[in-house]
Write a protein that binds this DNA or RNA. Sequence first.
DNA 1: GTAAAACCTCAACTAAGGTTGAGGTCAAGC
DNA 2: GCTTGACCTCAACCTTAGTTGAGGTTTTAC
Lengths: 154, 154
Amino acid sequence: MPHQTAGTHALSIGELSQRSGVAPSALHFYERNGLITSERTLGNQRRYGRDMLRRVAFIRVSQRVGIPLKDIRTALDSLPEGRTPTKRDWSRLSRLWRSELDARIEALHHLREDLDGCIGCGCLSLKACRLQNPSDELGAGGSGPVRWEPAPGA
Amino acid sequence: MPHQTAGTHALSIGELSQRSGVAPSALHFYERNGLITSERTLGNQRRYGRDMLRRVAFIRVSQRVGIPLKDIRTALDSLPEGRTPTKRDWSRLSRLWRSELDARIEALHHLREDLDGCIGCGCLSLKACRLQNPSDELGAGGSGPVRWEPAPGA
DNA sequence: GTAAAACCTCAACTAAGGTTGAGGTCAAGC
DNA sequence: GCTTGACCTCAACCTTAGTTGAGGTTTTAC
């Protein structure tokens, strides 16, 4: 540990890990995948700017919303280069997931209705039961709603 | 194709695949994992009873709800052996996922509230922002609510 | 100045839910 | 009776999101 305990110095990977609650191996992984960046010491050890704390925070929050890392990366790539992102920047990004979350909730409500129908009839019939014909709601080849669940078979 | 086109004969894997919309490779996979079963012809080809249609249907529906195959298998194992499941049986199983779905919806609502807070302040602060402290709601080592999302870091 | 803790890279492994391909067999129709 | 499509097994591979371990280097603390 360096002398400063809560100052403004660059963070080692251990410190970032501690403060963000994300394992060092995961931070390595994020860096390999372009989600975070680091400077290096003369001895090749990573040093993170303090804005990386918020960046990692954003990554975790996004994951909680269910966004895949690939998409999180795309969002992060839209941050301005050359300057530390402001609160306004982060605010904008967070807003991105808001509609995602709404859609997800909507879809679960639908699913619940359908499930209730099926609980009632116990049918699960391929012909009659809507639960059996997701093509209905995914557009069956058209450009329907976004497929927000992992979509097992596709 | 056999002569009967819509009768009551046992289904080949191709037929089950067609009628259920699930790829043969996935059916193989389900069988390997004990989610479905088949008889074999003298020539070692799979023949499925017609109740497998509903079984596969249940599997897909469950996946849409977000239940992992392992748990779907546990549910299926609770079906009575020796007789074809009735609608009542399927109804009971479907009801199993109902509370699962409710919990999921609940959790997303919470998350949305938290996200709204963060959109407002743009903070993502490790100290102040609830989104940053999921330990709050996961009990931080206690036995809190069920962790229903993949929980990336744990 | 040295020991221990922290760090480095790289490769291999994990889990879920499958898909793909090789090499060989079965069954249906003509 | 033979061809063709459907089927069989088994092993390897895919994606996502990482973890684990080996073997070696840096930093920190005393």
